[in-house]
């Protein structure tokens, strides 16, 4: 079962690279935020998986909970910040 968790974690990291493409090359700022949010929610699952691999779930679950909190707050703060900026289209000019 440990190797199953290991392969699951590797697969999850590979998926996160796909989302990272959107976070790096996204045409607007909000696309980047979607990518970062998607990576964050995958990281929450990845942290618990890592805990299962190392057999220290009770520690990693706390980190995952804090990470879920942080992800939510980061997205809220960033979107509140960028909604005052007009012209999010103009990033490339």
């Amino acid at each position: 079962m440990e190797s199953f968790f290991l392969y699951g974690a590797i697969y999850l990291s590979l998926i996160m690279i796909l989302s990272l493409y959107r976070a790096v090359f996204g045409p607007t700022v909000l696309d980047r935020m979607i990518g970062v949010n998607a990576i964050g929610s995958k990281t929450t699952a990845l942290l618990v998986l890592i805990g299962l691999i190392y057999q220290r779930v009770e520690m990693f679950v706390d980190i995952a909970l804090a990470y879920a909190c942080l992800n939510f707050i980061a997205v809220l703060a960033a979107s509140r910040y960028f909604q005052k900026r007009k012209g999010l289209y103009d990033e490339h000019h």
Binding site: T28, L30, M33, I34, N37, S41, T44, A68, N71, F72, V75, L76, S79, R80, F82, Q83, R85, K86, G87, L88, Y89
Partner: peptide, 21 residues
Amino acid sequence: VFITSPTATHAILDAGVRAGL
């Protein structure tokens, strides 16, 4: 996550609407 995910989605969407995309 089930409580916060709709709120986060809505916050990003609202930023887009107010920026006029």
